[in-house]
Write a protein that binds this DNA or RNA. Structure first.
Lengths: 146, 146
DNA sequence: GCCCTCCTTGTAGTTCCTACAGCGTTGCCG
DNA sequence: CGGCAACGCTGTAGGAACTACAAGGAGGGC
């Protein structure tokens, strides 16, 4: 069991692109590892753990900024985990908001598509839905492109 | 009822930031309008309609590339709207994929948070979930950050 | 003539990577 | 020992869809 590994190995172990690992290092999420004579990065198990943490959090959709905070918090094991809880709950709220938006979206897309009989564009219900109705209802969409 | 309007008016009418309108113009989604002596853009009702279309499609989450195609298709009213239908359906598939992902995400976040008793970080269940379990199950997250 | 608002252009920043380009290093085969 | 592929290095640019300045010009009310 090798205690040290190259970036390629770490990449495979964590299913993370090499460039992404370097990006995390530049962003200060991963500490810069030692280098070999040939200037190659050599990672230790601690890096592997930290990177796994980051990837898992990213998989759950936490933004890097939040992950940075989580990592700092988790480094001080004696501290209360209130802040951790708050970050997670905040994120949950965001996810739930996005879910609601997407559900509305799907409903509208469903409706749009079900109406399309695939004739000519001139009477395509999809295009119609998108066009501003001159006399019809405004028919607002999700109305939150940002 | 003014037939011509400035960019600010158009912005208000369509609830679109001025910069975004110029961005759409640069991106070729909105035709470049005429200018006044003072070099101000002057928009006509046709611009308003086109921009409304774009905004509505964006509100439904269509990417600009798809909107570009939709606009081209809708310009030729005699063409079959098969392609339109396909774009919409593709988009629906994407939305549904995202919904599934987010639902899984919410479940995991819910679980995570419900386990947290807000003691110290040392035994925080949220941090635990993110840490790679040395003996525990891998506990993969959504596993698809990108 | 002043002042405030609106408009102009252009550039850079956001988020989270991804994709080169152009080079140096390592390891293995013969 | 030569050669080659695979791997690593740095640095920069791109992408999606805007957003946010900065620095200045134009228009209209008082």
């Amino acid at each position: 069991m090798p205690r040290q590994m190259t970036i390629g190995t770490l990449s495979r172990e964590t299913d993370t692109k090499v460039e992404t690992i370097r990006f995390y290092e530049k962003s200060g999420l991963l500490p810069a590892p030692d280098r070999t004579e040939g200037n190659y990065r050599t990672y230790e198990p601690s890096h592997l753990r930290r990177l796994s943490f980051i990837r898992r959090a990213r998989g759950l959709g936490f933004p890097l900024e939040a992950i940075r905070t989580l990592l700092n918090l988790s480094d001080d094991r004696s501290r209360s985990c209130e802040a951790v809880d708050r970050i997670a709950k905040d994120h949950l709220v965001q996810v739930e908001q996005k879910l609601a938006d997407l559900n509305a979206l799907r409903a509208e897309l469903d409706r749009m598509i079900s109406l399309c009989s695939c004739g000519t564009v001139a009477d395509c219900r999809i295009i119609d839905t998108l066009l501003p109705g001159p006399a019809g209802s405004p028919s607002r969409a999700t109305e939150n492109p940002r």
